[in-house]
Computed example of a mutant assay.
Amino acid sequence: MANQYVPDPRAEAHIEAAKHNFMERLMGDIAQDAKRYAPVDTGELRESITAEVHGTTGTVKATAEHAAYVELGTRYQSAQPYLRPALYQQRGGA
């Protein structure tokens, strides 16, 4: 029988921890940029921006009631994107 590769559980745990740490840094950087790009009137929008990491999936969101209207605009107000520019910011090796 041919030798089969058996992963080292310690190595697997180290890799998973590294992926999680990378995602936390990346999501934190994106949230920080979004806060910097967000237009400020009362500060509610900026304060509502959060980052979450679940395994190797991350989410940056703004929970202020008017967040989508600011990001996308309305027929009365031009868009003032803050999430998309933060997401598309080049991250040289985050």
Rank of each mutant, 00 (worst) to 15 (best):
Gly58Asp: 09
Leu83Asn: 11
Asn21Asp: 15
Arg75Gln: 11
Tyr5Phe: 15
Pro7Ile: 01
His14Glu: 14
Gln90His: 13
Ala64Met: 05
Thr42Leu: 05
Arg84Gln: 06
Met1Phe: 04
Glu71Phe: 02
Pro9Arg: 12
Ala51Asp: 06
Ala31Gly: 06
Gly93Ser: 11
His66Asn: 05
Thr57Ile: 09
Arg84Leu: 12
Ser78Phe: 08
Tyr5Trp: 14
Ala79Met: 06
Gly92Ile: 02
Ala67Gln: 05
Gly73Cys: 05
Ala62Gly: 12
Pro9Lys: 10
Glu47Ser: 09
Ala17His: 08
Val53Thr: 11
Arg91Asn: 11
Lys61Val: 12
Ala13Asp: 07
Ala51Arg: 00
Ala62Leu: 05
His66Ile: 04
Asn3Trp: 14
Val6Gln: 14
Ala86Asn: 01
Arg91Cys: 02
Ala68Met: 12
Ile15Glu: 15
Thr50His: 06
Leu72Ile: 02
Thr59Ser: 11
Ala18Asn: 09
Gln4Arg: 15
Asp29Gln: 08
Tyr76Trp: 13
Leu26Thr: 06
Thr63Trp: 11
Thr42Trp: 11
Ala79Pro: 09
Glu47Gly: 07
Lys61Thr: 14
Thr56Val: 12
Ala11Gln: 15
Ala18Pro: 01
Ala31Asp: 02
Asp33Val: 02
Glu71Val: 07
Gln4Lys: 13
Ile15Asn: 07
Ala79His: 09
Ser78Leu: 13
Ala67Met: 04
Gln89Arg: 15
Lys19Leu: 12
Leu26Phe: 00
Arg84Ser: 04
Arg25Thr: 12
Glu44Ser: 01
Met27Arg: 11
Ala86Thr: 05
His14Cys: 00
Thr56His: 07
Ala94Tyr: 02
His14Ala: 14
Lys61Tyr: 14
Ala79Glu: 13
Gly92Pro: 09
Met23Cys: 03
Ala64Cys: 06
Glu16Tyr: 05
Ala51Val: 01
Ala2Arg: 10
Gly58Lys: 08
Arg75Trp: 10
Thr63Ser: 15
Ala2Val: 04
Pro9Cys: 05
Leu26Ile: 01
Glu52Ser: 06
Val60Ala: 08
Ala94Leu: 13
Tyr82Ala: 03
Thr50Val: 08
Gly43Asp: 00
Asn3Ala: 13
Asp29Ala: 09
Ile15Cys: 01
Leu26Asp: 03
Met23Phe: 00
Ala34Glu: 02
Ile15Lys: 15
Tyr69Met: 09
Ile15Asp: 12
Met23Val: 04
Asp41Gln: 01
Leu45Met: 10
Lys35Gln: 12
Pro39Leu: 05
